[in-house]
Amino acid sequence: MSRTDKELYALIADGDKGTLEEIYDKYEKLLYSFAIKLSGDATLAEEVLQEVFIKIWTHKAVYQEKKGKFSSWIVTVTRYTCIDLIRKRKDENVSLEEETDIPEEQDPSTEDLAEWREQGQLIRQAIRNLAEEQTIMVDLFYFKGLTQREIAEECNLPLGTVKGRIRLALKHLNSELSNIQEKGGVHDV
């Protein structure tokens, strides 16, 4: 790429509309898909993107290098925004099962998504391989973004043990993921 995200971001901060568009093009599909994953709601996902790009353009969300990579940052802003909007709606009682009614998937022939799909499958498989309570923990914590107290209530756990459970679930998820990658070898030539 000729210009890094960091350079692009600097131009956005200077009010360069074309650059915002460039960033938009680059992240549109990922952020949109992610917001749908989080909310299970395509209409809400569109609002999330709108909100995210308003925040970026009006400097309500400010990227700094010390916050890590730009891509991680914009994903995090999207996650917060989505969690926030869902809370404001408060209408849906998003449960684990609802993940299945994701809107129709895009044309699978688009090959540049192959890697993303593969990785996504591995990650979803890894999540499925977890013990049920750990799957729920990952979902409530990361994808639903509940507060510690809410997770404690939802799972009937003392507040103080929630952190440890989350950590354990995520660690298992990651070792599960390494296992699958080693065995599945989708990428191992």
Partner: peptide
């Protein structure tokens, strides 16, 4: 984890 999202 964001990659767990199905591309839409």
């Amino acid at each position: 984890l964001p990659l767990a999202s199905e591309p839409v």
